[in-house]
């Protein structure tokens, strides 16, 4: 099928303002949007800049806006879009550096702010083996372990657009992953961080994050669980 691909372009060394380049191409409906961008680089304009690596939705490099919505370019197929014009733009809320590449610095800074690592200074089991955890305890936080830090959620969040000091959904998801891990002892610290002005209360339950997540994490629910833990003082 023939599609019209419109791609956001901005070269900070040449351009005063962004533009859109249009490419008419014959594609397979099963092609990924990433494949289309690679066709552009191979056959039309090799200077197009984007991040990509695994090309099957696990590395999180190629989150971008496609027809106005956040996707991983490697996880959305042409046929899923039901459109013969496909517009590809960089994520919102982060500074555009070049073409589809945005500054991920603030995103990772927010991630680091929630202490995203296991905190437990208790002695290890005497036999040197694993700490025990039941399948039920493990399933309690399994969903939020799926996060690949692609930023699709955070950059779809109106509260983040309004103020990028808000830690954003991805950081809360990663806090959730530890708060509800039976082996972790850092919940109180993280809940205190998330109870601050730039924490969970900025979430207005718009559900954009849940819709944007390429890993199908129920992010809004995870945020609600963290809010509840703050209010009740209980991690359940």
């Amino acid at each position: 099928m023939q599609v019209k691909l419109r791609v956001f372009r901005f070269d900070p060394e040449k351009d005063q303002k962004p533009r859109y380049d249009t490419f008419i191409m014959n594609v397979d409906p099963n092609d990924r949007v990433l494949d289309l961008l690679e066709y552009v680089k191979a056959d039309f304009d090799p200077s197009l800049a984007l991040r990509r690596s695994c090309a099957h939705g696990v590395c999180g490099s190629d989150a971008m806006r496609v027809n106005g919505r956040n996707y991983l370019a490697c996880k959305v197929l042409v046929k899923n879009l039901n459109a013969d014009t496909i517009t590809v733009e960089p994520l919102l809320g982060l500074r555009v550096i070049k073409d589809l590449i945005v500054d991920m610095g603030p995103f990772f800074e927010n991630y680091r702010s929630v202490l995203p690592y296991l905190i437990n200074d208790e002695p290890l089991p005497a036999d040197g083996k694993e700490r025990l955890q039941t399948p039920e305890q493990q399933m309690r936080f399994e969903e939020t372990t799926k996060c690949i830090l692609c930023a699709a959620c955070t950059t779809s969040c109106p509260s983040f657009w309004a103020d990028d000091r808000y830690v954003g959904p991805a950081a809360i998801v990663n806090a959730h992953r530890f708060i509800f891990d039976s082996r972790d002892r850092g919940a109180e610290k993280r809940l205190n961080i998330l109870n601050e002005q730039i924490g969970v209360w900025r979430c207005r339950t718009a559900f954009n994050c849940t819709e944007a997540c390429p890993r199908d994490i129920h992010i809004t629910q995870a945020i609600a669980e963290v809010k509840k833990a703050i209010i009740t003082g209980k991690v359940e």
Binding site: G128, E130, Q133, T134, Q137, E142, R177, F178, R183
Partner: peptide, 22 residues
Amino acid sequence: VQAVYDLEHMGLPFSRTADGRI
């Protein structure tokens, strides 16, 4: 063997057996 236990101690969320082991 120790490497896997080390990963668990670092927090790796392994799937678990009914008795809570990796």
